[in-house]
Amino acid sequence: MSERVGSKIYIDVGATFSAEGILRPKYLIWEDGRKFEIDRITKIERCATRKGGGAGIMYLCMIWGKPVRLFYEENYRWFLEAE
């Protein structure tokens, strides 16, 4: 279930851990309940977001040809920046 906190939208994410301990998101559930596979991750970096209001590890995910900034907050929660 998704949850809006200020300008952040916490969402359900499916992710894998590799044997080396690398965490990678695989799909996410949009606020409206639709499931989207992540086709490709083009960038992973630690960064803050003024727009979303927070900081974490940002996965730049390609979904249906569009870039989506997905943040891992390191408290087992993932969020998107609200438009």
């Binding site: 200020g6 300008s7 803050a48 003024r50 727009k51 979303g52 209001g53 927070g54 900081a55």
Partner: peptide, 8 residues
């Protein structure tokens, strides 16, 4: 830190 978490 609070300002970052409260863009509003």
């Amino acid at each position: 830190v609070e300002m970052l978490h409260h863009p509003e």
